[in-house]
């Protein structure tokens, strides 16, 4: 695990990098001057008090901020070397490559199967086959693989065609993760993925994130410092200063918890310990 972490931190070319990023809603600045490189394969946890712009920051990384009225983003975000804030970016493709998981599980009001097959077909991720039967078989294989990946296969294999809304909260959230994974993204953005779940389901999702670690780069917002400590390679601390969100410190998990440089970080993590 330590070798992993050092590999991530010493990586020279970050996979995803925000440069002097600022986001405002109308006149209100949510956060400003955030520069944060995210290395390939690491789990980056974003922590901080409510209202410090964590979720807004995350929503820039896959341009979900486009969907918010009066929302304006300045700065640059580089993904594999290109600036994704450029108007020429294909957001459909971008969001396929950078998946997102929300606070509240949000499966579509369709069957488990349709929830997964819909994005798969939409992006043409299954090779067109000689027959419909073979095509369906290929979709089935992809669905089974991804459900096994999130540990949901055994639980839902007999109810693939019943409504996804009938699943429990934890199952729904894992289905949502599966739905994002089926598009074979490079990055997963997770916006407090466990906060709407009970502790047991939360632990399952946490374990899943660790299992996905080497394969997917993950950026996760969490209010739970203990959780950040358990899963993150590095931690970014956001804070509100002069009514604006700011990134006050980034470092390895060990450094943030054991030797924070910013006094606010120190107060925050010690408060979190207590």
């Amino acid at each position: 695990m330590t070798t992993m972490m050092s590999a991530a931190t010493t990586c020279t070319q970050p996979l995803l990098e925000a440069k002097h990023l600022q986001l405002s809603y109308g006149q209100q600045v949510a956060f400003h001057d955030v520069s944060l490189p995210i290395a390939s394969g690491e789990i980056m946890a974003i922590v901080g008090p409510s209202g410090c712009g964590k979720s807004s920051f995350l929503s820039c990384l896959n341009r979900m901020s486009d969907l918010v009225p009066h929302c304006h983003v300045q700065g640059e975000i580089h993904f594999n070397g290109t600036n994704i804030l450029s108007p020429r970016t294909d957001t459909l493709l971008l969001r396929r490559r950078i998946g997102m998981i929300f606070q509240k599980p949000n499966p579509f009001p369709l069957s488990v199967w349709e929830n997964l097959a819909l994005p798969l077909r939409e992006h043409g991720l299954v090779k067109s086959q000689t027959s419909r039967r073979a095509f369906r078989q290929a979709i089935h294989q992809a669905i089974e693989a991804v459900l096994r990946d999130v540990g949901l296969w055994e639980e839902v294999k007999n109810r693939l065609h019943s409504s996804a809304l009938a699943l429990s909260g934890g199952q729904q959230q894992r289905l949502c993760i599966a739905r994002a994974l089926i598009l074979q993204p490079e990055v997963l953005l997770l916006d407090e993925p466990c906060s709407a779940l009970d502790p047991l389901a939360s632990a399952v999702v946490e374990e899943l994130m660790l299992r996905l670690r080497p394969r997917y780069t993950q950026v996760v917002i969490t209010h739970n410092l203990a959780q950040a400590k358990r899963i993150a390679d590095r931690i970014a601390v956001f804070w509100v200063q002069q009514h604006k969100g700011q990134l006050i410190e980034v470092g390895s998990t060990q450094q943030i918890f054991n030797a924070p440089t910013h006094e606010l970080t120190a107060a925050y993590v010690s408060g979190g310990k207590g």
């Binding site: 992006h123 043409g124 991720l125 090779k127 067109s128």
Partner: peptide, 8 residues
């Protein structure tokens, strides 16, 4: 790759 591109 081709099928993805044409879908897009």
């Amino acid at each position: 790759e081709m099928s993805q591109l044409s879908s897009l």
